[in-house]
Design a protein around this nucleic acid. Structure first.
Length: 860
RNA sequence: GCGGGCGUGGCGGAACUGGUAGACGCAACGGACUUAAAAUCCGUUUCCCUUCGGGGAGUGCAGGUUCGAGCCCUGCCGCCCGCACCA
């Protein structure tokens, strides 16, 4: 008897697939295509369990679809630009490129050891000039199409590191690395005009029916469409007008003040002659934008002394404040306040003693007595105190107010979005250079496409803070492409989210000398199944949706949406451990001494076991996939990843769970090893007779095919695993029923069918073992070339069905009856059951419900 | 605050459109094999009562609809996630 040698099996089959180029694909019009993609990794150094889970799921889908006859493309690459490479450069004096490519080499090897069915010929790295040259081309195209532009915006600026920070990199108002208080700074940057597609990005969400509702909801909220009105208020003693945005023009009669954002140009203008106002604005800027600050912040305002004329009420004026809660980025950067019907306005009004005039009367309230106390009334109702709008519903009043404003040329109805254009400039070295040259005479001039790529210089230093490209002695000097005079390169690089916004398209023609080969993208796109973490629900997934629209506008492709199907997987979690001093400990530093107790492996000191949390280096609750693969094999890791937890939910990594997976794989290995010699040869003709035991096994086999197929179509990997295990149990039972006698009609055949089926069903999940067992069963065609098994419908139904018998809905017994038995007959049998007669004794039979082949309910 | 999701044994989780709740595993316990251990195999395992025939309760809580509810409806409670001064 042989033992399952996973090391040898996994190496053999990985080499075999490689030698036979099993996963290399090209366009093939004869077969339906299927594009499976997992979010590509950042080459941080080593793969982690989250990668293992993600890529295992993708591989199951890829191998399953392949067996179903699809021409499956399943590529892999590297999201290789980004900050950590620069940090490594600073900390370890290693060039970002070197660090990145070394990491890629390590991680490629690790992924290969997982046995993924990837077409490695399509591998790309976004930091490679062969990739980013095309990104620079498209940038120029976008520029020409008006989809990229240069603009000013307020950014998070870290004065110590000398760079812009993303919002995520600002923690409690301080730079995450330098710890310096972040400043709000106005900078000229490049933008992608994602807002040109606001409505379209919103509308098209409805077509993404294979996306999680949650993600669509999040994008809907992020895009943030609202309908309302722009109002142009006249300002007393000034020529210009004040523009505000509101969603409640119906409450205009209840207005008691107007307020500007501290960043509003008018506020800045007024501050020039008013030091108190200047100080107030300064204070607002310092306050920062972190949530905690906003939560606690008091509504504060500064009365500018200016008076705003009410458009509908002759002679009425409203005071104009600068208020800390008004955002420059939304609407017009200015508001009118109606305290009775907006909580924030109410707080503000109470603080500054402003009028609170109710103008919407709730349905069951009395106009004579209705007042607003501490809570603003934001609901529906009837307009009151509102002149021409009195008596209208909120919706009618909105329309009427807009109509009147438009008539007076004092405003108009508008649709507003929360979505902002995408600022892509980063003051970083390790990113795609922005292909623009700034000329004093000609302005910002794109680098001609023939001169691309603009390559990153290799000879850079990280010995001072700030952008190495800016400090480079000569790189930024370049002649103006337009007039030829000395000019200056843009020293910013693109946000790395740009890189990941189109990589899925590049995979279709990874070596093309244009961004994408038209025939290839027309064949392969869109991605049929995309798999990744929910943390990308907005940024990456929204940017990519924008990018394909922009690419379409520039004639590169013709799809509307990049990802037809999306699956967001849960995280991998693990218990946490701390020593007496509160320091985090790695799982391999501790030893369990009981159910909820542990000690330090070396010191023997007690260890506190904390709750299970997402694996992270900072909490040291990580398990290295490479160690697991080395000691148990990739298949065990894969099988465990797919068992137990539904893929969209978090998975708890436990040693016991891994052992369980390991035990099962050994069990099926042993089972086949023990039975293989007694089986008939592969491909033997189906006998025409089966005894009862053989039929029972065949039923289990075909139910497993049916169930596993259904589950795999539906991302029910945990259920599929359970059904394969159930089939294995059924084989085990059959083997003991059969004993050593396989001569009864059909037994040997049914046993082979069951074992072969189990192997084929588990192939997408544990491909090395499955291939090996398939070979053991006497086949010389690899499973990668085999079709998916098909269930025999005749075997899915049982001839004898077990029917539940209830009395008043309570289970009293069961009946085994032939399928399709007459209702009367079933009813008679049910009423004759001792448990039923006992329960109905002395009571009047009211009625009997018979659900054919399912349940009989006796009502008394 | 707004939006969304989820509550099922000791644990992870099954349960097709309302029809035998607890599949499949983990852990635990008992047994077989063994000098012993590991490995493996067999069995038990929702809870309570039991005269061992059974009986009762049970899917967060309280109601409702239905012959029948884990699933549908109403109201609570708890947990998780996202957004957050969005006018």
């Amino acid at each position: 008897m042989s033992r399952y040698n996973f090391r040898e099996v996994e190496e053999t089959w990985q080499r075999n697939w490689d030698d036979r180029a099993s996963f290399k694909v090209g366009e093939d019009s004869d077969r339906p295509k299927y594009y499976v993609l997992e979010m590509f990794p950042y080459p941080s150094g080593r793969i982690h369990m989250g990668h293992v889970r993600n890529y295992t799921m993708g591989d199951v889908v890829a191998r399953y679809k392949r067996a179903k006859g699809f021409n499956v493309i399943h590529p892999m690459g590297w999201d290789a630009f980004g900050l950590p490479a620069e940090n490594a450069a600073i900390e370890r004096k290693i060039h970002p490129a070197e660090w990145t490519y070394e990491n890629i080499a390590t991680m490629r090897g690790q992924l290969q050891s997982m046995g993924l069915s990837l077409d490695w010929d399509r591998e790309i790295a976004t930091c490679h000039p062969g990739y980013y040259v095309h990104q620079q081309r498209m940038f120029v195209d976008f520029l020409e199409a008006g989809l990229a532009y240069r603009g000013e915006s307020v950014v998070n600026w870290d004065p110590v590191d000398g760079t812009v920070l993303a919002n995520e990199q600002v923690i409690d108002g301080k730079g995450w690395r330098s710890g310096a208080p972040v400043e709000q700074k106005k900078l000229s940057q490049w933008f992608f005009r994602i807002t040109a597609y606001s409505q379209e990005l919103l509308d098209a969400l409805a077509t993404l029916d294979r996306w999680p509702d949650k993600v669509r909801m999040m994008q809907t909220n992020w895009i943030g469409r609202s309908e309302g009105a722009r109002i142009y208020f006249e300002i007393e003693n000034r020529d210009d007008r004040l523009e505000v945005y509101t969603t409640r023009p119906d409450t205009l009669y209840g207005a008691s003040f107007c307020a500007l954002s501290p960043n509003h140009p008018l506020a800045a203008e007024l501050a020039r002659n008013n030091t108190d106002l200047a100080a107030f604005i300064e204070e607002c800027a310092r306050m920062g934008t972190s949530e905690a600050v906003i939560e606690a912040a008091e509504k504060k305002g500064f009365d500018t002394g200016l008076k705003i004329r009410h458009p509908f009420i002759d002679g009425k004026t409203l005071p104009l404040y600068v208020a800390n809660f008004v955002l420059m980025e939304y609407g017009a950067g200015a508001i009118f306040g109606c305290p009775a019907h907006d909580q924030r306005d109410l707080d503000f009004a109470r603080k500054y003693g402003l009028d609170v005039v109710p103008v919407v009367l709730p349905a069951n309230a009395d106009a004579a007595t209705f007042t607003v106390g501490d809570e603003a009334y934001t609901g529906d109702g009837t307009a009151i105190n509102s002149g021409f709008m009195d008596g209208m519903s909120v919706d009618e009043a909105k329309a009427a107010a807009i109509a009147r404003l438009e008539e007076m040329k004092a405003g108009k109805g508008t649709v507003e979005f929360r979505l902002r254009d995408w600022g892509i400039s980063r003051q970083r070295y390790w990113g795609c250079p922005i292909p623009v040259i700034h000329c004093e005479a000609c302005g910002a001039v794109p680098v001609p496409k023939d001169d691309l790529p603009v390559l990153l210089p290799d000879d850079i230093t990280f010995d001072a803070p700030g952008n190495p490209l800016e400090r480079h002695p000569s790189w930024k000097d370049a002649p103006c492409p337009s007039c030829g005079k000395p000019a200056r390169r843009d020293t910013d690089t693109m946000d790395t989210f740009v890189d990941s916004s189109w990589y899925f398209a590049r995979f279709c023609s990874p070596r093309a000398d244009v961004p994408v080969d038209r025939a290839a993208v027309d064949y392969w796109l869109p991605v049929d199944q995309y798999i990744g973490g929910v943390e990308h629900a907005i940024l990456h997934l929204l940017y990519s949706r924008f990018f394909v629209r922009a690419m379409k506008a520039c004639g590169y492709l013709s799809i509307d949406e990049p990802f037809a199907g999306l699956f967001t997987q849960g995280m991998v979690c693990h218990e946490t451990y701390r020593d007496e001093g509160g320091n985090w400990l790695y799982p391999d530093e501790i030893e369990k001494t009981g159910d909820a107790a542990a000690k330090h492996r070396d010191t023997g000191k007690p260890v506190t076991i904390g709750r299970s949390e997402s694996m992270s280096k900072s909490k040291r609750n990580t398990v290295d996939p490479e160690e697991i693969i080395k000691s148990y094999g990739a298949d065990t890791a894969r099988w465990f990843m797919l068992s137990d937890s539904p893929p969209e939910r978090d998975l708890e990594w436990t040693d016991a769970g891994v052992d369980g997976a390991w035990r099962y794989l050994n069990r099926i290995y042993r089972l086949i090893d023990e039975q293989k010699d007694g089986l008939n040869p592969p491909g033997a003709a189906q006998p025409d007779q089966f005894d009862e035991a053989a039929i029972e096994l065949r039923r289990a086999t075909h139910q497993a095919i049916e169930g596993v197929t259904y589950d795999l179509e539906d991302f029910g990997f945990n259920r599929a695993v359970a059904k394969i295990r159930a089939l294995t149990n059924a084989v085990g039972n059959a083997v003991s029923t059969f004993g050593s006698d396989l001569s009864a009609p059909g037994r040997a055949w049914a046993l082979r069918e069951a074992l072969e089926t189990a192997v084929r069903l588990m192939n997408p999940m544990v491909p090395h073992l499955a291939e090996s067992l398939w070979e053991t069963l006497g086949h010389d065609v690899a499973l990668t070339e085999m079709n998916w098994p098909v269930a025999d419908a005749a075997l899915l139904q049982q001839d004898i069905v077990t029917i539940a018998v209830q009395v008043n809905g309570k289970l009293r017994g069961t009946l085994d009856l032939p399928r399709g038995v007459e209702k009367d007959e079933a009813e008679k049998a049910a009423l004759a059951l001792p448990a039923v007669t006992r329960a109905t004794d002395g009571k009047t039979l009211r009625k009997v419900i018979v659900v054919p082949d399912r349940v009989i309910n006796v009502v008394v």
